[in-house]
Nucleic acid binder design. Structure first.
Lengths: 334, 334
DNA sequence: CTGTTAGCGCCTTCAC
DNA sequence: GTGAAGGCGCTAACAG
């Protein structure tokens, strides 16, 4: 077996209590005792058993990352992976571990969200990639467990959220297009079950209004965030409105799909048609032409989410909503 | 506080022990007692505290997923995300949780790999995306902790591995190109710190030999698995060997980069130059033309890795090496 | 079949 | 400043 606090106590010739206090930096320990204990612990390569500690402290220092059925979404990783990095890294700094689970997992076990988390004694949860219509989200929000939701503006006593200011983002895109001289600007959105889609649509409409441009249903198309979906969107939009000179997409992947389709159709980008994406995924820089897009600060989203759960857990701050400002990245498609 | 086994015992009018046994399906419990206990537990919505159980059982039912510095690699998610799905899903079925951590995290804390895992009482570890030259891998292999490595043929008493048969895979690509009439076939490899690169190179060379084709250094290029890297590879190869009629790439992303570059250079694919990728990432299907490639069964890789750690933990099977057969997916670039 | 007793490894009053 | 004692929630002999 691995060595316990008892071994250290014995070796150092003090009581278990003293070892515990010495190692946890309590002030009421003699300086020489502390040093002695530290030394012995070092020599024995003692590592406190996190499980035992969790039991008595009633905290596991573990955050759950709840992702909706991982399998279904084939392209979510473009966005989510970096967010996960940010989350993981910041959580590690804060002394927390990240444990992965999906709604299906919990559902399979026929237990409620809260039961699932309580059983594991998670200290908090971060939710990502969940649709508006997922029944779990309500449980999350109502739960007494600290949580942060990404890309869904849900808020309650113990639940905050982090998302990009999507309205502002698409406005940025529209304004940019307007500045480039475009007056007939289309919009290809993602599916409506995503909260971000609603905001992006609003950003598009408000952007048009702000520029003094008419808002017209025939300029909008609802796709599914996929590559071919973006291509189809472009094609249908262009068919309905041949006078279109620019299209804003609600995701880079769709924009790249649009880019491909445009090439197949012999439509020159950006000469005949300008395109703006959304996200700034790794691929955006390398499309041909390189994609002009609205950058989401994904790493930061993850970090902020991490900070917020932890702050909520420690009651250092009430959960709130964070809206991260995206930024325009001008490349070759406009 | 949440309700404990004691509450159930009290409510059911039996001892704690009986509750434990009844709920854990031991046979030595009276049928009516069992039912009574189950009912009460149900009514009270009792969930056994996993932490307490872990402490006494000395197992956490938790597997660590060790990924090398998440941040550095910008394109790893194309491959890794699906593998993670497979891993997560199978582990969930087997009753294990997956906890994410990176080499940097552990390193920051200045503890060795083993200490890191022991402190958390992980039951096992799966390692992915680690380079050959990472100092951690030796620790993993030597460790008494059950582990499985993905894409690195490391094996020991408690360590097995799962990877695609990369040699066979590239041979498949070469043979396919040969069958299509190509006799001068180039190869763009990934960086040499990846074990898969070595295998894929060998597959390429052996494939040529098998087809009776000469092996020539000027036909090979070492890139970095990135999109632009693939483009550069194609360009340089073509410059050195204008007689090239086909190129096999060690990854889809590089192949797609090559595809783009070919288009920029006005090289018709597949007419003038045939291209084969490797991986079958989601994007492959949607490149123009759609990419012919060697499919790695990523979901299965994850699942097999999951099964292997668990089997090793339970001592149901000795850790071993699994080589998954890839398959040729013919699309439009050949 | 069921209850009693004894820990798992650690932290935390409370005395000394 | 230090140690003894109790307990976190659960399982596992050992009796009866």
């Amino acid at each position: 077996m691995s060595i316990t606090i008892r071994d250290v106590a014995k070796a150092a010739g003090v009581s278990i209590t003293t070892v515990s206090r010495a190692l946890n930096g309590y002030s009421d320990v003699g300086e020489k005792t502390r040093r002695k204990v530290a030394l012995v612990a070092q020599e024995l390569n003692y590592r406190p058993n996190a499980v035992a500690r969790s039991l008595v402290m009633n905290e596991t220092k573990t955050i759950g990352l709840l992702v909706s059925e991982l399998t279904r979404d084939r392209v979510g990783h473009f966005f989510m992976f970096r967010v996960m990095h940010g989350m993981h890294d910041r959580l590690a700094e804060l002394g927390y571990d990240l444990i992965l689970f999906s709604t299906t997992t919990a559902r399979q076990r026929l237990v409620s969200y809260l039961d699932f988390c309580m059983q594991r004694r998670l200290d908090g949860v971060i939710v990502m990639g969940i649709r508006l219509d997922d029944p779990y989200i309500q449980e999350v929000v109502d739960s007494p467990l600290s949580s942060v939701v990404i890309d869904l503006p849900l808020q309650s006593e113990r639940c905050g959220y982090v998302m990009t200011d999507n309205v502002y983002g698409v406005k940025l895109a529209v304004r940019h297009l307007f500045d480039r001289g475009h007056r007939t600007i289309g919009f290809v959105n993602g599916y409506s079950q995503a909260a971000v889609s609603r905001d992006r649509l609003r950003g598009y409409e408000e952007g048009l209004v702000q520029m003094g441009l008419p808002v017209d249903r025939t300029l909008m198309h609802e796709a599914d965030f996929s590559l071919p979906g973006g291509g189809d969107g472009l094609q249908q939009l262009l068919q309905a409105r041949p006078d279109l000179t620019a299209i804003a997409f609600a995701s880079d992947l769709m924009a790249i799909g649009g880019l491909q389709r445009a090439r197949e159709l012999g439509i020159a980008v950006p000469e005949r048609l300008a395109i703006v994406g959304f996200d700034d995924i790794e691929l955006a820089e390398f499309s041909t032409p390189p994609l002009t897009t609205i950058r989401q600060k994904r790493l930061e989203m993850g970090m902020r989410a991490a900070e917020m759960v932890v702050a909520t857990i420690k009651n250092q701050a009430a959960p709130h909503g964070i809206l991260l400002a995206p930024e325009l990245v001008v490349r070759g498609t406009t």
